[in-house]
Every structure is written in structure tokens, then in C-alpha cells.
């Protein structure tokens, strides 16, 4: 998938899903299940990128959709469902990470947290790939993201890893589009200087 295809996926999604959202809002359980089918993967990955634990990501995905299901009648514009869903997800993941940090302060990490070793978790889909490459990739991404400010990191991830449009990012983060663009500019500027990471990406996909 190239950049243009990504953009197409992002921009078309709002108008395409609006009728389904309307049906779900009217009380159709089937319609909401359709929305789950459409977005479960995106939300799961979003949670995974930010927790690096598939178990936590699964739990968070479940909670995020439950919250969306309960509050769907509060969504005013059906075509904004995607941004709205990601907003719920962002808040939920932020709460999760905050609690996790708090627990870590008192050394109360549970088994689930211990599983969430950074860059080390393998997926079924990636079994065929070299384990070293997977670890390398997440290490490179982690190192790069650590160089960004919180806002830059969030905007960058939402744009290039979660494939949200600038408008959707603005909605999800509750910031103006110009603020989002400014943070995006700064993060891309830093990304451009990450020569080793960019070289790794080019080699890995060659």
C-alpha cells in the first residue's frame, strides 16, 4: 500500500461508514458488529503500538468498543465515527498507561505487565519473519519515538501508524488542525534526520 492508497483509505472511510453508524445508533446490533469488524484490527494495533503487549491490547480493545457501544448515541455526526472511536481509544490507553506507571512505582506489576517486554513479543502473522528483524524494528521505532515530545509522538503515530487524517487527529486529540500540523512538521523533521532507521526500513522492505 503506498501513500496515496493510505490517504484514500482514510478520507473515504467517514462517508462510507456513516450509514452503518446511523443504523447502529438507531439500535441495530448487527450494524455495530459490522463496525467492530471494520475497526477492531485498527484499534487493537493502536493499543498494541502503545502498550507492546497483545494481552493488554486485547483487553483495551474490548473496553474501548464497550465504551463506544454505550455512548454511541452521544456521537453527533456519523461520518466522524472513526475520529470519535480513536478519541475514546486514546483516552482509555492514556488511563491504562497512567495506572501502569502508578503500579510500577510501588513495584506492583502483575504477570500481564511482565509479559509486555518491549519489542520482544511475537505474533502469529510474524512467525515467518526473522525474530531479530522484528526486535530491531521495534527497537528502532522505540528509540525514535523516545526522541519526540508527547504531542509529537502522538500526532506522528496517529498519522503514520494508525493512518488517521489530519482532521481525524484533530478530532481525536481535541486540538486544532494547525496545532496538529505543527507537531507533525516537527516530528517529520526529526524522522528525516533518523538516517539509520530510514536505512533499516529501506533494507527491510527491499
Amino acid at each position: 500500500m503506498n501513500q496515496k492508497q493510505n490517504h484514500a483509505r482514510v478520507s473515504d472511510s467517514g462517508s462510507q461508514i456513516a450509514p452503518v453508524v446511523e443504523q447502529a445508533r438507531a439500535g441495530s446490533r448487527t450494524a455495530f458488529e459490522q463496525l467492530v469488524d471494520l475497526f477492531q484490527g485498527d484499534i487493537f494495533r493502536m493499543a498494541y503500538y502503545r502498550t507492546r503487549s497483545s494481552m493488554d491490547a486485547e483487553d483495551l480493545t474490548q473496553e474501548i468498543f464497550m465504551q463506544a457501544f454505550k455512548n454511541l448515541d452521544r456521537l453527533r455526526m456519523a461520518e466522524r465515527f472513526r475520529g470519535w472511536l480513536f478519541k475514546i481509544a486514546l483516552n482509555r490507553i492514556r488511563d491504562f498507561n497512567r495506572k501502569k506507571k502508578f503500579r510500577a512505582l510501588f513495584g506492583a506489576l502483575d504477570d500481564n505487565d511482565k509479559v509486555a517486554q518491549p519489542y520482544g513479543e511475537r505474533s502469529d502473522r510474524a512467525e515467518a519473519l526473522d525474530k531479530l528483524m522484528i526486535q530491531d524494528f521495534w527497537k528502532q521505532v522505540g528509540m525514535f519515538l523516545d526522541k519526540l515530545s508527547r504531542m509529537e509522538r502522538e500526532v506522528f503515530m496517529l498519522r503514520f501508524m494508525d493512518h488517521l487524517s489530519i482532521k481525524e487527529i484533530s478530532q481525536a486529540m481535541g486540538k486544532s488542525e494547525s496545532t496538529v500540523k505543527t507537531h507533525l512538521y516537527r516530528s517529520i523533521e526529526k524522522f528525516k534526520k533518523e538516517h539509520s532507521m530510514r536505512q533499516f526500513l529501506q533494507e527491510a522492505t527491499a
Binding site: F44, S54, S123, R125, A126, F137
Partner: peptide, 9 residues
């Protein structure tokens, strides 16, 4: 790559 190297739910 991030998408490909992530597990599925």
C-alpha cells in the same frame, strides 16, 4: 512494517 510485525487480535 508496524502493521505487519504486530500480532492480530
Amino acid at each position: 512494517m508496524a502493521e505487519r510485525l504486530s500480532p492480530s487480535p
